[in-house]
């Protein structure tokens, strides 16, 4: 693992919702082409922290961030960074599937179209590739013009993953991507994460510790806005250093 490059790094991140100190001095580094899971009880700040990496908190009234996030060594909170350009490199999949009320095809090519791509053949090719990557192609290839809202929840979520992948980000943030899905759909998403990490750096927030154990290489445990412990997933689950981590993963609270 040590031969891999550092893809994402947080340095002294503090974040506030108004007066509420939501994230307290967080330092963490994530290597490229790995899966990092953020776990912790509700309200511990793990989702807030995830959204720091593509600046999704910027529009929240009263939200303030201090510190640096380095993506490939460059601070994404620097003054000259264009947020929309950043988000093309750092894709996001949300807790609840949120396809646009458009056709399946239009959903997948959305990101390319807003970047100005208009070549039909190129768009179709990119759509097929993204849908393959999201393991959805075989289910939808004959219905690309059907409304995305007609798909099942699990299919919608994979469509959202395809939509994110279509613009070739290098990082994929996933905010509890399977929490609204049934076990079979969840298994499909997890399998997908395994395949995707060959190309992408993935950060996943999850409430489900088994899921963290199954999909991630490293796991970070958050508690009350602090990063308590970040280590290889196996270590976190078998030999945690901190008492709070141990209590949480053994189900003593949370």
């Amino acid at each position: 693992m040590s031969k891999k490059q550092i893809k994402l790094e947080a340095r002294d991140i503090n974040a506030y919702y108004g007066d509420f100190h939501a994230l307290k001095g967080i330092n963490v580094a994530m290597e490229e082409k790995t899966v990092t899971a953020f776990i912790g009880p509700s309200g511990c700040g793990k989702s807030t922290f995830l959204r720091i990496f593509n600046r999704m908190n910027d529009y929240i009234d009263g939200f303030k961030t201090e510190g640096e996030i380095l993506l490939d060594g460059e601070n994404i909170y620097a003054k000259n960074v264009l947020v929309d350009e950043l988000r093309k490199r750092v894709g996001m999949v949300f807790q609840k599937p949120n396809p646009f009320p458009k056709s399946i095809y239009e959903n997948v090519v959305y990101g390319l179209k807003i970047q100005g791509m208009s070549n039909k053949a190129a768009l179709a090719e990119a759509a097929e590739k993204a849908l393959h990557q999201a393991a959805l192609w075989n289910e939808v290839k004959d219905n690309l013009n059907k409304s995305a809202l007609a798909l099942s929840g699990g299919q919608q979520q994979r469509l959202c993953i395809a939509r994110a992948l279509a613009i070739s980000p290098s990082v994929l943030l996933m905010d509890e991507p399977a929490s609204a899905l049934d076990p079979i759909s969840t298994a499909k998403i997890e399998e997908l994460i395994h395949q995707l990490k060959e190309q992408y750096t993935i950060v996943i927030v999850t409430h489900n510790m088994q899921q963290a154990g199954r999909v991630s290489d490293t796991t970070a445990f958050f508690y009350m806005g602090e990063l308590v412990e970040h280590a290889k997933t196996k270590t976190i689950f078998t030999n945690p250093k901190d008492k709070r981590t141990e209590d949480y993963i053994t189900g003593r609270f949370g």
């Binding site: 999704m56 350009e85 988000r87 093309k88 949120n98 959202c160």
Partner: peptide, 13 residues
């Protein structure tokens, strides 16, 4: 729904 706006922003819109 707010989730659609987030989806759009998340795609770099």
């Amino acid at each position: 729904p707010k989730s659609l706006r987030e989806a759009a922003y998340g795609m770099g819109s």
